[in-house]
Design a binder for these strands. Structure first.
Lengths: 233, 233
DNA sequence: ACCGGTCGGTGATGGAGATCACACATCGCT
DNA sequence: AGCGATGTGTGATCTCCATCACCGACCGGT
């Protein structure tokens, strides 16, 4: 509910600059070449391992990016917000999509075909740079993911990191220490690479330690510093 | 020793096209703008967290790319071969270098300043595309890394995967099931996210199961399929 | 030959968390 | 109400691997 309001605001904000932070000339071209569609919740834009058809640019909504292990377990790489292109790495490198993209709420998404993307990049260095900046950011965030997930161990540390990270994204809210919990324990587990049960137990522990309070889907973090002290412990 | 020979061959192959797979016009420009230096073994080109100064392009030699966790443990992301640019993501996104780059043998490396890279990319879409292709490949390989390291568990599976991967890179050798082991157990552990002792024990187990044979630093994998059967088990 | 360093093998131990197996709470549906 | 589906809380157990603690091998320097 609350998220819808946010997204409407974002939509309005972006109708101005159309394609986010791109120069108007390129944004217009993009607007002409791209095909914009509205997807319902749970739509799969592309799946890990498929041959790349093109890139998707999130205009409105939220998209979950995940990878799947051989044993069937799932790891959520990140939740993608409007303004971000998806699947660029696959298209540019010609390799299969490296993750699965699935809408988490009704979303408006532009599609740009493989060849159109490459042509645009060749013609407009500025656009190529924009694309590259996004991949670079993705790469950096993936590296952080690796560091956090492999080199920290202790599930509590990872959960604390995740919560603090969410808190930072939450600057828009009136109460900065309060947030809506949009994911299930299962999904949170998939974000920090641990089981549903472990997440449950960790939440219980955090509550006992007064690190978090929870009423319904509302999460309050009274003492951010205390939570941060769990990180790099 | 053997690697030196390989590298000489690669050097010869690249002196032709100079900057690998780039169009000659751009390669020439790059050749003028870039500063090429020879580094000894163990030189640190850049360290994780530093502000980006520019990109490094490996011309000859091998460079180890690693990240370091808060607890001091190290994870080797990959070993970079000639022809690959390093640190691009950091320069393009303006964020700190996301990993540490260290030469593993005497290496010849070109340096291109921050601003020069961006200008070149803006001016030559083709060059920007080349850069983006490399980042994309890095991104894809990092995703695989995540999948393999987090979603497989069982250290033996990871080691088996690593060995099979090395086997694939080894196509140049006369005996395709034979290879030189260039890393210590410690470093192998850092590649698969486990301890030195575990690697030792795994190797012992593999030998007992006749999955590998080892004499000195030469590793023979008599039955590749058997090794692969450990993966996704 | 003597050492100090790095590397590799191997036993013993402990602990974090996966997994299994429940019970309970919602919530939407007919 | 009654019912499945889905999400959550929590105990018991079990497994894998990190860690500690050695020892022996090898190599390069003086």
């Amino acid at each position: 509910m609350a998220t819808h309001v946010v997204n409407e605001a974002q939509k309005l904000a972006t109708t101005d600059k159309t394609f986010c932070d791109l120069p108007p000339a390129i944004a217009d071209t993009l607007e002409q070449e791209a095909l914009t569609t509205t997807y319902p919740t749970g739509a799969v834009l592309f799946a890990e391992g498929q041959a790349p058809r093109g890139v998707f640019i999130v205009r409105r909504g939220r998209v979950k990016l995940s990878i799947c292990g051989s044993d069937g377990r799932t790891l959520i790489l990140r939740i993608v917000d409007p303004g971000c292109p998806l699947g660029v790495a696959a298209v540019v490198s010609g390799r299969p999509y490296e993750a699965t993209a699935e809408t988490q709420e009704p979303s408006e998404i532009s599609f740009l075909r493989h060849s159109d993307l490459l042509n645009l990049m060749r013609q407009h260095g500025e656009f190529a740079l924009w694309v590259t900046q996004h991949i670079s950011a993705d790469y950096a965030s993936t590296c952080r993911e690796i560091r956090d997930l492999i080199l920290s161990d202790s599930a509590s540390e990872k959960l604390a990191r995740l919560l603090v990270g969410w808190l930072d994204q939450n600057t828009a809210s009136k109460n900065p220490s309060q947030m809506k919990l949009a994911l299930t324990h299962e999904e949170i587990g998939q974000m920090i690479g641990s089981s549903r049960e472990t997440v449950s137990r960790l939440f219980a522990g955090f509550k006992k330690q007064r690190l978090i309070q929870q009423t319904g889907s509302t999460l309050v973090i009274p003492d951010r510093v205390a939570l941060e002290s769990l990180i790099t412990a």
